[in-house]
Design a protein around this nucleic acid. Structure first.
Length: 329
DNA sequence: AAGCCTTGCAACCGCCGTGCC
DNA sequence: TGGCACGGCGGTTGCAAGGCT
């Protein structure tokens, strides 16, 4: 925490920064929060320096952006991280490293700052303790589960991670029927037998779903190379990377701003209520790939929010998945 | 009760990439 | 092509609150 502080205190006003000299630093007051919230809900996201100016905030745009993203955003989750979230963070961190924004993108309602803080203050410490206390001589042969069993934290199966993502992604309102189908197949329980055709088929369902949500993202792009060179060996861990969260609320808000204040909030799936907001995530109409940054042209191209994914159709196009090199009978 | 220590986390800082002029 | 503004990101700081002695 920082004390509210006027920049003028220790800043020498320059000729071209008379306005900057008035910029505040430190903690945000409730009044400032209110101004920013009001402005954002009325006007949506734009140029942050304009927002700071137009909202009558003596803050730099950067500060406004940070405040909004990390604290005021309506879709933010509040409260402690659930065990599933913890496990997901650990899992993602094992894959992504300190790319907090990437991790946050896969944890709906959580910010990179929040995750970073949580990692540095809690998880890092816990893992350190666990690593020193639980290492056993037999650990070496359990490399297949290395990503999921860290210290004595409860191992979480990939489908759990998937489930978590599905649940917590509900605010994005993408129909997850396809995902549910994946879970019904329980593909990960069969992963130990990689070359089992049934497992492969189930796996395909999962990868289809994942690909539909995740392809086009830079990370998957990176991993495509890995998969190309080491497909089968890496399939498990790659498939366990949960889908990206839908785009940030700012972007969603930009779409739904017209509705703000005009519709009641009937989104029962969204736990993150914001007293004076009326975001309606269930009725947004724009392409899935727009939300998810997809640029490929698969059959999901024209899917819209609320549409169901045509898994059967996708299954017919198995060969279109470049990172699957096994054959389905 | 008071002082010290630890923890959690909001916010800042500096760097980098991108777009515009 | 260089300079500037801006947004985004990861690392770091420093305050408040709670715990401990």
């Amino acid at each position: 925490m920082r004390k509210p502080d006027l920049m003028g205190k220790d800043r020498v006003p320059s000729n071209n920064s008379i306005n900057k000299a008035k910029l505040r630093k430190g903690l945000w007051s409730p009044e400032e929060d209110e101004k920013l919230i009001k402005y954002m809900l009325t006007n949506g996201q734009g140029c942050w320096s304009d927002i700071a100016r137009n909202a009558d905030l003596q803050r730099c745009g950067k500060s406004c952006r940070l405040r909004w993203i990390n604290y005021l955003r309506p879709d933010l989750k509040r409260g402690a991280f659930s065990p599933q979230e913890e496990e997901l963070i650990i899992h993602l961190h094992s894959i992504l490293g300190n790319r907090w924004s990437q991790i946050a993108a896969r944890l709906p309602g959580r910010t990179d700052n929040e995750i970073k803080n949580f990692w540095n203050s809690t998880l890092k410490k816990r893992l350190k303790i666990n690593n020193t206390s639980t290492s056993s001589p037999n650990d070496s042969d359990s490399s297949e589960h290395r990503d999921h069993v860290i210290g004595n934290i409860m191992p979480m199966h990939d489908h759990d991670i998937m489930t978590l993502c599905m649940d917590s992604s509900s605010s994005s309102s993408i129909s997850m029927q396809g995902m549910v189908t994946c879970n019904q197949f329980d593909p990960f329980s069969m992963l130990n037998n990689r070359y089992d055709v049934t497992a492969a088929a189930s796996l395909l369902d999962t990868s289809t779903c994942l690909a539909q949500v995740g392809m086009g993202d830079g990370f998957y792009g990176d991993h495509y190379g890995i998969l190309e060179s080491n497909k089968k060996m890496r399939l498990e861990s790659d498939l366990s990377l949960p889908p990206l969260e839908s785009r940030s609320i700012e972007e969603n808000n930009a779409v739904s701003n017209n509705r703000i204040g005009m519709e009641s909030n009937n989104n029962n799936n969204n736990n993150n209520h914001f007293d004076n907001t009326c975001f309606n995530h269930t009725d947004q109409r724009f392409k899935v790939e727009d939300m998810l940054g997809l640029e490929n042209h698969w059959q999901g191209e024209n899917l819209r929010m609320g549409d169901q994914w045509d898994l059967e159709g996708l299954m017919e196009n198995i060969s279109s998945f470049p990172f699957l090199d096994f054959q389905v009978e």
